[in-house]
């Protein structure tokens, strides 16, 4: 099926090219050639994409780069519309990260876990994934006692919050620290 489409795509520009009257300027011919070469690469891309599924992941935080266009097997992300796994050829979508653990399944079979506080994830049509986090740290570097302390701190912050803004800030802090504690366990 794929191959047929490929051939049909080629046929048209070739016919177009051969059928040109001799009087046509060389510039026009060049243009036709360029058109042809464009179609060709496009067709190749479509084939490559169907044959060997891969996705390239960019996972970055403002001051660190964890993955920069690196091919991986799968990524699990926590988002506000629910946690989901991203496999190659995932339907394009946008999502907003919520505090939680991002799991990256690398091509060599190893998995890596990172805690993210917030951010966005973009899955594009061409199977590229951009995972932009405000903060991202490997889960094994987290300290559970510090996380618990932070949780207690933010709970007391919520209790003493007077304005709506302070309350909301404390609630966000609680959410993050709860996720931190959960990630440590």
């Amino acid at each position: 099926m794929e191959r047929k489409v490929f051939r049909d795509r080629i046929k048209l520009p070739i016919a177009f090219f051969i059928g040109l009257p001799s009087g046509v300027s060389s510039r026009f011919r060049l243009h036709a050639l360029r058109l042809f070469s464009g179609r060709f690469t496009q067709a190749c891309q479509v084939r490559g994409y169907a044959d060997a599924p891969s996705m390239s992941l960019t996972f970055a935080a403002p001051s660190q780069v964890l993955y920069n266009n690196i091919s991986v097997k799968q990524v699990d992300v926590p988002s506000f519309s629910g946690s989901f796994g991203i496999l190659p050829a995932h339907v394009p979508t946008l999502a907003v990260l919520k505090p939680g653990v991002v799991t990256v399944f690398e091509n060599d079979g190893s998995t890596k876990k990172f805690f993210v506080s917030s951010g966005t994830v973009t899955i594009n049509e061409d199977s590229t994934v951009q995972l932009l986090a405000e903060e991202a740290v490997p889960v094994d570097t987290l300290d559970i006692s510090a996380a618990r302390e932070l949780l207690a701190q933010s709970q007391s912050q919520l209790a003493s919050a007077s304005s709506d803004v302070a309350k909301a800030e404390a609630e966000i802090s609680i959410e993050v620290s709860e996720a931190l504690v959960k990630a440590c366990e």
């Binding site: 960019t58 970055a60 403002p62 973009t122 594009n124 951009q130 932009l132």
Partner: peptide, 20 residues
Amino acid sequence: RELKLARPYGIGAQEFYKKA
């Protein structure tokens, strides 16, 4: 040094607008 780390982040942030 910091820019080197921030660049993939910035480029990643622009990617969606280009691709969509």
